[in-house]
Amino acid sequence: MASNSIKNKSWMSVKEVGLIHFFVVLCVIISLAVGCAQKGESGAAASQVRATDARGVEIVLPRHAERVVVLFEPFVDEMYMLGAGDKLVGIPQQVYQNSSSYYYLSQLDPRIAKKSIATPTFGGRSTHVEKVISLQADLAIVYEYDIETIAQLEGLDIPVFVVSSKDKAHIYDELINVGKLIGKKERAEDIVNYVNNAIEKIGSEVETVKKSVYYGWSKGRVFSTSGRGSLVDLAIQVAGAVNACPLEMEAPNVSAESIYKWNPDMIVLWNSDVEDVYRLAELAALPAVVNKQVFAMEPTFFFDPHTVKFLLFAKQLRHWGYQDYTTDQDFKDALQEIVDFLYEKKMSIE
Rank of each mutant, 00 (worst) to 15 (best):
K180P: 07
M249C: 02
S218T: 04
S230K: 04
K201N: 08
I191E: 04
A244Y: 10
S204H: 08
E248A: 08
T225M: 14
G183Y: 06
A188L: 11
T225V: 13
G229F: 04
E174F: 09
Y215Q: 03
N197H: 08
S226E: 09
V209P: 01
K210V: 03
I182A: 08
G229L: 07
S204L: 07
V209S: 04
L247F: 11
A198G: 03
N197S: 14
Y194P: 02
G183H: 06
I199G: 01
E200K: 09
W217M: 07
V238I: 00
I202P: 03
A239T: 00
S230F: 02
V206S: 07
N197F: 00
C245R: 08
A235P: 00
V192M: 15
V209R: 06
E200S: 11
V192N: 10
L247S: 13
K201C: 03
N193G: 15
L234A: 02
E186F: 05
L247W: 11
G203Q: 06
Q237N: 12
T225R: 09
V206W: 05
G203D: 06
T208K: 11
K219L: 04
Y214E: 13
I236P: 03
I199C: 03
R221P: 00
V232I: 12
V195A: 04
K211Y: 01
R187G: 06
I182F: 08
D233R: 01
H170N: 14
I191P: 03
T208M: 08
T225A: 12
V238R: 04
E205F: 06
S230R: 01
L175I: 10
W217E: 05
E248W: 07
S218L: 02
V206N: 02
S230C: 07
Y214M: 10
D173S: 14
C245N: 15
E205H: 10
D173C: 07
N177S: 10
R187K: 15
R187C: 12
K185Y: 09
S224Q: 13
E200H: 05
V178W: 07
M249E: 13
A244K: 11
A198S: 05
V232H: 01
K211W: 03
E207Q: 14
S204E: 13
S204W: 05
K184A: 15
S218C: 02
E207N: 10
I236S: 04
A244N: 14
E205T: 06
P246S: 15
A244T: 14
L181T: 07
Y194R: 09
E207T: 08
V178P: 09
I236D: 01
I236H: 01
N196S: 13
N196I: 03
Q237S: 06
G229Y: 05
R221C: 04
K184S: 13
C245S: 12
A239V: 02
